[in-house]
Amino acid sequence: MNRSAASFFTSQNFTLFAIVIVGAAALGVTSHGGFFDSISVTTFFTFLAVPILIGLAQMVTLAVGQLNLAVGSIGGFTSCLAGVLISSLGVSPWVGALSCLVVGAVVGLINGSLVVFTRINGFIVTLATMTILLGAQYGLVGTRTISSTKWESVYALGRASLLGIPVIFWIAIAMAIVLRLAFSHTVTGRHLLASGGNPIAAGLAGISNDRSVVIAHTVSGLLCGVASFVSLASLSGVNQSVGGDWLLSSFAAPIIGGVALTGGSVAIFGTVLAATIVRLVDSARAELQLAPSWVNFVVGAVVLGTVALGRFRAVRAARRIKQPVAGSSVTIVESAQ
């Protein structure tokens, strides 16, 4: 475990952690302690589960050098499907709710297979499946909202708590831990990272990059399904808007958390922390009674800043050790004055 311990508290995680602490403290002060009362805390953690899960879902595809635009639509579609299954087809609440996971994984599997077999850019494949699922989601529920009263037992889970913290938050944390173990300790996890880090080297070492891509998309879909399950348990009902605002947060968490967009790395703790920061921004927005769109603005700006800074740092580091970054687009593209 030395390696993990060493990488666990890298400086970036530490910075993020500090921001979380400072942010929470600041919110506590501005709300005169209201932010730390039990209802606020419960709300905070309840609605932190989904950002963490979709951040992880995106992170898994980024790890192999892919991306998943369909994160939100998989979540929206599966939750609405579960709602319809339970309310109209009489499927038992638990079976219906857990169908989210299966359907999510299947859609992810389809995404991955399409990327591998058609060799179409993953961007376009997931853009297409996103569109299809958005249509399907609307087809399922139209403009109505299916109330969570139809799945009281599942909804009860959303309000249950363990050690004073909502159970569904623990679910998200459990997923993060499972991923953490999978990426650092299983052969499959390492193969995924090898494919993302250097597909040619991976191929020469006998690792199937195609398999890595399919697995990553499937796991990503599965995690969207879990996020959808969590939504089902925590929202008062499902409708066509579920998943609509997941896309940016799904990218924001891993990017701010330190995942390289080029593939080959994961940052689970960083992703969780970054999702927490985004959630803090949202809480602050509510506290200051600003329009919800402010959150998007702030997060968008932070993401831009993070990638730009990270890139500048990489280039400077490369210069310092006097290695020409041959082939990197920075050195080869003339700078725009």
């Binding site: 896309l247 967009l261 968008g300 500048f312 725009a336």
Partner: peptide, 29 residues
């Protein structure tokens, strides 16, 4: 967006995605 892409070498996908969210926040406000 173009300047950020050319200057930092970051994928245009990410830059324009972030740009879109910054604008989604800014415009309605």
């Amino acid at each position: 967006s173009g300047w950020l892409v050319a200057r930092t070498g970051v994928n245009s996908f990410i830059v324009t995605l972030a740009m879109s969210f910054a604008l989604i926040g800014l415009v309605p406000t």
